[in-house]
């Protein structure tokens, strides 16, 4: 007969730490260690601040927006290591590698143009006046790949209302920071810096149009457009301008960067449209990050509620 003698010091099945907890602890330790190094050896206060640093900034922001998609989220790692942000290099791995030089605090945002009272705010004061919420949106890049991202932010419409645009205001223009020291990609003239984007005022006022300050319950990482970026889920990703310093209300259609670069390839509207191909490649399908095969692209990226903004407009001409 075989007698199994259990080593009294061996761990039993029920004593094993659940993997999720274990991984979480490791992540916490790693991030605490990192921030401790960052804080330097400055005694107890340094330790305290590093402990506070480990918590996510927007964890308690209300979730479950009616605009959410219930599709599987794209992993945080993929969202933050694969994106276009030419201010930090043209490879999709570049933004994560090169955006350490960006300083998202302190940050000033100017609201001007056709508004009753042009102003400028500090980003943190600005965020304090807003009611933050989470929005889980699809993002469709003009390069035919897509993601599902849980953003933290507030409706652009709220900012527009507060700015009190004049009756002449018909468009909203956005400008990214211009600083080749913080954004080394601006040293090469690949695009006409600073990056600018724009929306029609009614598009910008649509409840889906969103200004994000965070993702995955935390502050926006630099590579994702810290400290403030636009998210317009029914348009190609490049319309969702990053690291915004200026919001200008205009009476005429503003110039937009990719449209200046190649007007026959990137229109002012740039609504996601599987029936209008990019001159060089098809827009009928997309590769969802995390999937091997392509899936069909949906009109307006599946956000049909914006269709009424474009009644009577030829979307083939106004691509």
């Amino acid at each position: 007969m075989l007698i199994k003698i259990i080593d009294p010091t061996a761990a039993r099945e029920h004593e094993v730490t659940p993997q999720a907890l274990y991984l979480d602890r490791r992540r916490l330790m790693a991030s605490t260690a990192r921030s401790m190094i960052a804080a330097g050896v400055s005694g107890v206060s340094g330790l305290m601040s590093s402990m506070a640093f480990a918590a996510k900034a927007y964890e308690k922001v209300p979730k479950g927006s009616p605009f959410d998609t219930n599709e599987a989220l794209t992993p945080f790692k993929d969202v933050t290591s694969y994106n276009n942000f030419y201010e930090f290099g043209t490879d999709k791995g570049d933004p994560k590698i090169n955006s350490g030089s960006l300083k998202p605090r302190p940050w000033k945002i100017t609201v001007d143009g056709e508004v009753e009272k042009p102003t400028s705010f500090d980003i943190d004061d600005f965020i304090k006046t807003q009611k933050l919420e989470e929005r889980i949106y699809r993002l469709r890049c003009v390069e035919a790949w897509s993601m599902v991202i849980p953003w933290i932010g507030f409706p652009l419409a709220d900012v527009i209302k507060a700015a009190r645009p004049t009756r002449k205001a018909k468009f909203v223009a956005f400008t990214t920071l211009l600083d080749p020291v913080q954004m080394p990609g601006q040293k090469s003239k690949i695009l006409d810096w600073p990056y600018t984007e724009g929306l029609r005022l009614d598009e910008a006022s649509h409840p889906l149009a969103f200004l994000a300050v965070g993702l995955y319950g935390d502050m926006l990482p630099n590579q994702s457009g810290a400290p403030l970026r636009l998210v317009v889920p029914w348009k190609y990703g490049f319309k969702s301008i990053k690291s915004i310093v200026k919001i200008t209300f205009t009476s005429t259609q503003p110039k937009t960067t990719w449209n200046i670069m190649a007007p026959d390839e990137y229109g002012f509207y740039s609504n996601v449209n599987p029936n209008v191909d990019h001159p060089r490649w098809s827009q009928g399908k997309e590769r969802r990050i995390g999937e091997l095969f392509k899936r069909k692209t949906l009109m307006f990226n599946g956000y049909d509620q914006v269709a009424s903004l474009y009644t009577g407009l030829d979307l083939k001409k106004n691509f």
């Binding site: 794209t74 995390g290 091997l292």
Partner: peptide, 14 residues
């Protein structure tokens, strides 16, 4: 090797 180490990045096909 990168494929099996899951280090081809977010878009391995690309």
């Amino acid at each position: 090797l990168d494929y099996f180490h899951d280090s081809l990045g977010a878009n391995p096909v690309e």
